[in-house]
């Protein structure tokens, strides 16, 4: 694991999973035969029903957990500060204000407050929360807390951003807005993102590639490339025939993977 197996034929892969399996101590086969490649600069979504192992894959990629079989290799992506993680809940420290919450990754790396301040101001600006530096999590709406969480993940300038159903708990209006912001941010920063969702629409809207998954055991059943140039992304994309076409395709793939189950 420590030795990254650098595949020179694919220099753009940040993380590669080869025939990876994960069996939890309880005996649950969370993942079986996962082949997956996270390519530099893309937004890859994992789309699948509850319990199909999406979170497990993210944890493996983040290095928070280890596979029980197969090989997972990273291309320098696990160096401190180069991986950002956004959980389904904002997961903020309730006793710390917005500034201190976002400061956390830099603080843990030993940066002083003063030195970190510009970077924090910058990400706050990006997520549109500059006015709320001193607010506490409880004083923010759910959408704003999620923005703080994203700002915290971005502040250490990660090459790889892992997002586990970050917007699932939000209303649709907020969710669309955050989706838009994420697309814009990604276009600007070029961050590689692995995004977990169980929403067909969100996956098509956000990503350049979709891995459709099924449960028992968790596996990847289809891969869909979204061939829309990133320039054409944005709000209007939601109303194009191409968008609808991809939604149908993803939806069908989900149905085929798990007939009778609802995503």
């Amino acid at each position: 694991m420590g030795l990254a197996m650098l595949d020179t034929t694919r220099p753009r892969a940040l993380v590669t999973l080869h025939d990876v399996g994960k069996v939890y101590a309880t005996g649950t086969v969370a993942l079986a035969n996962i082949d997956l490649e996270v390519r530099s600069g893309e937004i890859l979504t994992l789309l699948g029903p509850s319990g199909c192992g999406k979170s497990t894959i993210l944890r493996l990629v983040a290095g928070l957990d280890t596979p029980t079989s197969g090989v997972l290799s990273r291309n320098h992506a696990n160096v401190r500060g180069t991986v950002g993680f956004v959980f389904q809940d904002p997961t903020l420290m309730p006793w710390a204000d917005v500034f201190d919450n976002i400061y956390l990754p830099l603080r843990l790396q030993g940066q002083s407050r003063n030195k970190a301040a510009p970077a924090i101001a910058d990400v706050l600006e990006r997520v549109g929360l500059a006015r709320f530096v001193k607010a506490f999590p409880r004083e923010l709406s759910g959408g704003m807390r999620m923005r703080v969480s994203i700002a915290r993940a971005l502040v250490s300038r990660p090459r790889l951003l892992l997002m586990d159903e970050p917007f699932a708990a939000l209303d649709e209006i907020t969710r669309f807005r955050l989706d838009d912001d994420l697309v814009a941010l990604q276009a600007e920063l070029g961050t590689t993102i692995v995004f977990v969702t169980h929403s067909v629409f969100e996956s098509v809207y956000l990503s350049s590639r979709i891995h459709v998954m099924a449960a028992h055991p968790g596996r990847i059943t289809a891969e869909i490339e979204i061939d829309t140039p990133s320039i054409r992304r944005g709000r209007e994309f939601r109303t194009t025939p191409a968008y609808l076409h991809y939604c149908r395709q993803a939806s069908d793939a989900l149905q085929r993977a798990a007939p009778g189950e609802d995503a």
């Binding site: 928070l64 991986v83 993680f85 809940d89 997961t91 420290m93 843990l108 250490s156």
Partner: peptide, 21 residues
């Protein structure tokens, strides 16, 4: 909070940092 613990781990926090912060 388990997720916060994971986050601290992800950023390579020491045991002392995790305790204190």
């Amino acid at each position: 909070d388990r997720n916060l613990l994971d986050l601290f781990r992800l950023y390579g926090a020491s045991r002392l940092q995790t305790l204190r912060l």
